[in-house]
Write a protein that binds this DNA or RNA. Structure first.
Lengths: 398, 398
DNA sequence: TGACTTTGTGCCGACGCTAAACAAAATACG
DNA sequence: CGTATTTTGTTTAGCGTCGGCACAAAGTCA
């Protein structure tokens, strides 16, 4: 009796990522009998996580039509929070990566990490009270490497935070303070991570990275370049959370000095500022560097100097990606931020450079694709927050 | 009834790696009850894989003394084979990484991959007939990247083999031909891999890498530099077997041209030839480059020019390792071949360079250690061959 | 020698699954 | 239009694997 406990987590993950639209495919995907799959679905429905729609799914093939499995429309959510250079965002995210509620982005940012984390958690908590939903976890994305197991921010460059700010601790405290409580009045467990890492997780679950075994993501936002690696569905953040700090690969030996002590690093040679400089444009203070670079690329790509600058940056980026391909041998690469724009402006050039400069580029070539969720760190933070539920639904809900 | 089937594989792995000397610690390591651990041990003993020594282990603490668990002395073996620049080696390896029998290394190497693979397998098969042991698998290490899933050698640089030689196919054919047969007269499954990768696996199971979560290995033998990564006990060879081709990291922007098209690659800047050249010695034809470099380092380290050459190579190697640390964030690094000798000659210098040039070197610093099995690819090949048995002992023996 | 501590084993029950038979709901075909 | 076929869902029985528990065994400690 009580069939289907061990398969509960994998089953929920299949529904969550949209790979199990019906109980029939759930059966085959899990490799269990129909009886077990049915029991699993019933259990997940009883937990309020999924919904079995009795209306048969549009048939078209022979046999009895299967009922549709979907995420429960008013099921539990997680609190997702993101802090970036210009402010913060908060949202509630349900299973399936669906945004349930979003707080208006706030732009006046207190410099103190404790205050801004309190503020973003409070914004999320307000959404939560408003919605009346149950909250099963919380995730925070910050633009910095987060050391494991300490949970401290090691390079919050865009935030004027102190190096080593204890972000995980602050997040947990803020969650406890603002009454984001679990069923037994205990604060929900907080997950804190680097924004690019978390965004890569989101792309892997719900975006262009779906189905990749070894997914490499590289993105540039304002300054610097971030990387992330998802191996067999799990974020690889190294033994102390510092993996994929790809910004200091050398891509231009005679290039600009970098704060790391070397020169010509990917960080300073392919970010929006490097592009603007290469195009001979002085960056203005009005909008973000990414926005200025994006505008320039979109509106003046005909201008030879802009085009030449784009090609120069693409060549450098390709060199860096080739180095990463030689080391990591991913089966898919996603680009975000300005790198994505550059890829879309001239996909063939980047692919050719990577194939030419990586050792085994000829033998197939890695697909290089633009991200589809715009490197949404909010959904990524939610994804990380959902992970404990996906791993063992009964532990938090039984 | 028949307790302890699911835990059979993990239990065997614990005994295999020497982490379960008694049933008592097996109980705690597996996280099961004493009853289950006892049943697991009995099952493994019935399969002829391990031995329960009734003589109590030397006590010293209170309570009933535990019986000793050990590898069955005349249990099954795997066939391990290695092909290198100067010839080939074959051996039988039991559980626990113990060499059971070794064929004398052969030095007259036919250029044709099919012939040499036939020869090394036949040497192993002869050992097997001699020993009368049961053979449960076979592994082959080759000095080349092996593409997945094709099983072809992509850069057999030291062997004058054709690029793309189908080594896995040839190995499987040779196994079938030479009568290395399983219980049901089917040929044992062959595993083929890169020698540095397999050696890293051996170091992780039985050498200096034991217990590391993210183990990075770097070694240089004759020409070029090889790398390998073991993540959570599993070899990471990328999506197509080509990961950790670390030889083409740039460590000297103004350095020597490399066949990859760039210049100053780790491959050409830190191998034995680079060291000999930097020391102003012309390489002789008598012994291998590695041997010449090793001799020079050991006997003339007082000579200022030799010392300066060593420091130069160490600095370049440190730069490459720092780059890898930034990307992979391992919790241990092992060095082999000449790199190991250089580390042992001046451990502090290399560690200082890596700490200085990696982003988070200050925050702890990665332990950099010499390998202890001398990067034994034979044991590594055996380790890979044992893996299916460790994963599910009953599948092959039940 | 007797108390205590730790290890090994036999028995039972709970849990989680498969297998198999049956029921239900569509399409395919005469 | 009705029956056969195909596929899906559900019920029941049964079995394998593990935890819990009681008891036995084998040492140390006082």
């Amino acid at each position: 009796m009580e069939r289907g406990r061990g398969a509960l987590g994998p089953a929920l993950e299949l529904v969550h990522t949209g790979r199990a639209p019906t109980r029939a495919v759930l059966t085959t995907e899990l490799g269990v009998t129909r009886a077990t799959a049915g029991a699993v679905a019933a259990e997940l429905e009883a937990l309020g996580l999924i919904q079995v729609d009795p209306r048969p799914v549009a048939a078209g093939s022979q046999g009895r039509p299967s009922h549709r499995l979907s995420i429960a429309p008013r099921g539990p959510v997680v609190l997702a929070a993101q802090i970036h250079a210009d402010g913060y965002r908060a949202a509630l995210v349900g299973l399936g990566g669906r945004m349930v509620a979003t707080a208006p982005g706030c732009m006046d940012v207190p410099a103190d990490p404790a205050h801004i984390i309190d503020a973003v958690v409070e914004a999320g908590a307000a959404l939560l009270r408003e919605s009346g939903r149950r909250c099963l976890g919380a995730g925070l994305a910050v633009p910095s490497a987060v050391a494991e197991p300490e949970g401290t921010a090691l390079n919050p460059l865009h935030l004027s935070w102190p190096v080593g700010a204890p972000v995980r601790e602050l997040f947990d405290e803020a969650l406890a303070k603002s009454g984001v409580l679990g069923p037994d009045a205990s604060p929900v467990p907080g997950v804190t991570g680097n924004d690019v890492n978390l965004a890569a997780l989101a792309e892997h679950r719900h975006g262009a990275g779906r189905g990749a075994r070894h997914l490499l993501c590289v993105a540039t936002g304002h300054r610097g370049v971030g990387g992330a690696l998802v191996l067999d569905g799990r974020l690889h953040s190294g033994s102390s959370g510092l993996a994929l700090e790809v910004g200091h690969l050398t891509v231009n030996p005679a290039g600009l000095p970098c704060h790391c002590g070397s020169r010509g690093c990917l960080d300073v040679e392919t970010d929006p500022l490097a592009f603007l400089t290469a195009a001979g444009r002085a960056p203005g203070p009005a909008v973000s560097l990414l926005q200025q670079a994006r505008d320039l690329l979109r509106s003046e790509y005909d201008d030879p100097s802009v085009r030449a600058a784009a090609e120069l940056i693409v060549d450098r980026l390709g060199l860096g990606l080739a180095g990463l391909v030689n080391i990591l041998n991913p089966d898919r690469i996603l680009l975000g931020g300005l790198h994505r724009e550059l890829l879309e402006a001239d996909p063939e050039r980047l692919r050719a450079v990577v194939a030419d400069r990586s050792l085994w580029g000829r033998s197939g070539g890695v697909p290089i694709l633009p991200c589809t969720l715009d490197f949404n760190s909010l959904i990524g933070a939610a994804e990380a927050a959902w992970q404990p539920v996906l791993d063992d639904p009964l532990a938090l809900l039984g």
